[in-house]
Simulated scan of single mutants.
Amino acid sequence: MAYLEVEDSRRIYYEHHAGPGRPVVLVHGWGVTGRCWDTVLPALLANGNEVVVIDQRCCGRSDKDFADVSIDALGSDVVRVVEALGLRKPVLNGWSLGGAVVVDAAAKLGANLGGLVLTGGATPRYTSCEDWPYGGSPADLEATLAAIGGNRAEVLKGVAGAVCHTDVGQATVDWMWLMFLEAGPRADESLRDLGRVDQRETIATLDVPVLLLAGRHDTFVPFDAIKTSAGMFPKARLVAFEETGHAPFLEEGEKYRSELLAFLNGLDG
């Protein structure tokens, strides 16, 4: 494990797992930690991939008192880690809010990007607007943030219970809840910023292979939003998970790992 200073004296936590194959950077969703990938990491390592797992600002083992927790800042952190480790053409895999983060990072990496995986990715928009009918309203998001601020433990317990559509077991739900509780209150501002982000112009410029992995029963990022976004990328393929909510890697893990590895092993260079 290691830390990288990214803002004044504030640091983010990351793990760098060696491997001879294509580098993969795993970026978690809002409020949880890099531990959410614990059922994915072993498959990547067995496949020979070099893997980096990041805890975003104010989450998990990273510092909790960052001033800037915007999507732009989180995406820049991914780029900083890639550059610090000298990764060549990595594939970025972002879950939920992490999807917007890796899109931001992908645009900044430019030619040094091997591909993109969006796991229930909250891109190009998380909230609805006049020409984007998907997701809740900005007012809905503010109400959620107010509820979290008023009773953090109970509201986040409810969020953890709503992530999966299938029955993944109480232990898994509790595990996710505990990850949420590790996030500092400043992480809430990342979710607020996500509600302001519009990446429609950005994703149209990402001329790399893109894999979208999405659950039909996702109540956080609507499947129809992800299906629409698939047509905005120059080179994207959508894989639907018929029995899944917001976490296909937990709900249909075998299929998720199979699709992910096939994508990685099919990339050129």
Rank of each mutant, 00 (worst) to 15 (best):
Y3L: 11
L4K: 13
E5G: 14
E7Y: 07
R10S: 12
E15L: 12
A18K: 11
P20N: 06
P23S: 00
V27Y: 09
V32H: 07
V32T: 10
V32G: 05
G34V: 03
W37R: 07
D38L: 13
T39G: 01
A46H: 14
N49Q: 09
V51R: 00
R61G: 05
S62P: 02
D65W: 10
F66C: 00
V69C: 15
S70A: 08
I71G: 01
D72Q: 13
A73W: 02
S76K: 06
V79Y: 09
V81T: 01
V81G: 03
V81A: 03
V81E: 00
A84C: 11
K89C: 04
V91Q: 05
L92P: 06
N93Y: 14
W95F: 04
S96A: 13
G99S: 05
A100N: 00
V102L: 03
L113G: 08
L118R: 06
R125C: 12
Y126N: 06
S128R: 13
E130Q: 13
Y134V: 10
Y134C: 06
G136V: 07
G136Y: 11
A139N: 07
A139C: 08
A143S: 14
A143L: 10
L145A: 07
A146P: 05
A147N: 04
A147R: 12
I148A: 02
I148R: 06
G150K: 14
G150I: 09
G150L: 10
N151C: 11
R152A: 12
A153R: 15
A153I: 14
E154G: 09
G158R: 08
A160I: 02
H165W: 14
Q170M: 11
A171D: 15
T172W: 11
W177M: 06
L178C: 10
F180D: 09
L181Y: 09
E182I: 04
E182F: 01
A183P: 09
P185Q: 08
A187N: 13
E189T: 14
E189G: 02
L191Q: 08
D193M: 01
R200E: 10
E201M: 12
L206Q: 01
V210N: 10
L212Q: 12
L213G: 03
R216C: 12
H217S: 13
D218I: 01
T219M: 14
F220C: 04
V221Q: 06
P222A: 15
D224H: 13
T228E: 14
A230H: 05
G231A: 10
M232K: 14
M232S: 10
M232P: 04
F233A: 02
K235F: 13
R237W: 08
R237G: 11
L238P: 00
F241L: 03
F241W: 01
E243V: 13
A247R: 03
F249Y: 15
E251W: 00
E251T: 10
K255W: 09
Y256S: 01
L260V: 06
F263S: 05
L264Q: 00
L264P: 02
L264M: 04
N265G: 15
G266P: 10
G266F: 04
G266C: 12
D268H: 14
D268L: 13
D268G: 15
